[in-house]
Structure formats: C-alpha cells, structure tokens
Design a binder for these strands. Structure first.
Lengths: 140, 140
DNA sequence: TGTTAGTTAGCACGACTTGTTGATTAGCAG
DNA sequence: CTGCTAATCAACAAGTCGTGCTAACTAACA
C-alpha cells in the first residue's frame, strides 16, 4: 500500500474527497501487519473517532481494494481480512489463536500435475496452517 | 474417501444408522471430481430421492467431514465445496467459469521466509487461479 | 459560497449454514 | 418381531458477513 500521503493525493486525482474518516483508515492500515477484518478495523477506528460508521469502513476498504492498495484475503475464517502488503506473498495461519503472518515463498512458480490441460495460471495463493511458537509454548 | 460400502461399515461401527439418504450421498460423492457445494449435491440428490432435505445433506456432509472422509474446501466463492479426494492435493480454479480441478504439487514441503520463528506447519493449501482451456477458447 | 460527494442511522435483504421443535419414520440390537 | 432410539422432515428462526437503500445532515473542494 502507498503511504497515507500518497493515498490522499491519489484519491484527489480520482475525484474522491479526502475525508477525515478515509485518512484515519489510511493511517490505521499503514504498516499494519495484523491482517484485520473490517470489524476489527472499525473498532480501532471508533476509538479514535467515535461516530465513524462500520459502513464507511467497509466502503473505504472496498475503494482501496478496487484501487489495488490492499489485498483481500479470505482464509475461510468467516470474515475477509485486509492486507496492506500487496507484494507477491503468502500467509501462515495459527489454527489455535488465528494470528496471520506474511511469508514469502521463493520456489514459485510452482509446477503441478493433474487433469488440467491448457490452464493459464494468473495467481497462486498459498496458506500454511499450523501452530505458532506462542501457542506451542502455552500448550506444552 | 472410502467406497460407499466401506462407509456403510464405518457408520455402523460408530453407531450411526445407515439410512437410504446417507447411502445416496455416499454414492453421489464416490469418485465425484466436481467439487460440489452442499446445495449442488442436494439438487442432484433430490432428483433421485424427492423429499430428501437440504438439512440432511448438510448433516451428512458434516459427519463425513468430521470423519475425515471428505475435504472441506473454501475458495472464497461464498459456499464451501466438498471433495471426496482426501489425498494431499491442491486446486486450480477458473475465475471465469468457476470450475475446480484437483492437482498435485511435488515440490512440497515448501520453504518460506518471513517473521514467523518457530511456526509448526501442519498443512499447506495452494489455490491456483486463472483461466481454463475452455474459457480461453470461448473468449478468443 | 455553492455544488456535490461523503457520512450517518436505520432498516432491510441475500447468501450460506446451523439450531430448534415436534411429529413421523425406520434402522438395528436383542 | 418388537421396541428403543436415532434419523428425517417441515417449518421457522437465527447468526454472520456484507451490501443496498433512503433520508437527512455535513463537509470537501472548486
């Protein structure tokens, strides 16, 4: 994701207004590695700006997603998560505590075998599930 | 997934009753490579057994899933899909027509880099998205 | 300063999945 | 064969996530 300042410029260019709500969301996402859901982001936003609506958070996230500034990640956990890291990366998920981390896989592109002649791969998503170090400690 | 006959035996062992509805679902899943949703499976089942309820289909799928006989796959397309292939395999999805195929990736285990010290990976899911040969033909 | 986009509250819906209840059916052990 | 009990069914509801709509107010930007 671009910096909040660059996003402000980009929104202006495209004729979107730069509201305090949008700027707040830009700042909350900047450098955020927590892979928040819209709800989670809303809760944090509401602390800093009581009165902001969940609707606005959803809308701004959709705009950022459409502009390619945030990645939409669906880990099958119910809610969609948002990742301001739009590099070509993948995710590890702790099945105990649900924490998500970004990881980079360097063997790509991957080769596969199966009954899929002529398939043109545009993107590859990899999700590693398991147990994070903290949960392993707690259960030991 | 085991054969319908083996599943019948397994259900009996575990004290589950072997009803015609369950047997029908076993047969519909046997060798099924279509990655059906519960709805889809219900529609096919209802043709062969009018009166079967969607509820029963969901329930039987949950039981099979809990027994490890079918894989639960969530491609973020709204509904969960079921796969009687429980080998260590992955999926390719056509983003145009939505068709799903099983594929095997032989470079596993994959290595990754990132800020995740001590993470114990239990499973890896890979989804390749793109365009299948048929959709490529149609759009060409 | 005025136009217009954005925000808000509130209500609703839609898709998917599960829960509940109460009546009926039928599997399976004895 | 009989009886216990699980399974099924219909019908309705709820819950989650996300979005659509409206109407009124606010504020960004030209």
């Amino acid at each position: 994701m671009k910096t909040p300042e660059e996003l402000v410029a980009r929104f202006r260019e495209q004729g979107y207004k730069v509201t305090p709500q949008r700027q707040l969301i830009f700042r909350l996402l900047d450098g955020n590695t927590a892979h928040p859901t819209a709800e989670t982001l809303y809760e944090v936003a509401a602390q800093q700006m009581p009165g902001i609506s969940l609707r606005t958070v959803y809308q701004t996230l959709s705009e950022l997603s459409a502009m390619g500034e945030v990645q939409h990640i669906d880990l099958g956990s119910g809610a969609v998560r948002f990742d301001p890291n739009v590099d070509d990366h993948h995710h590890v998920v702790c099945s105990t505590c649900g924490v998500v981390h970004d990881v980079y896989v360097n063997q790509t592109p991957l080769h596969f075998e199966g009954d899929v002649e002529g398939f043109a791969v545009h993107s590859t998503r990899i999700v590693f599930s398991g147990e994070c170090a903290q949960c392993a400690h707690l259960s030991a």
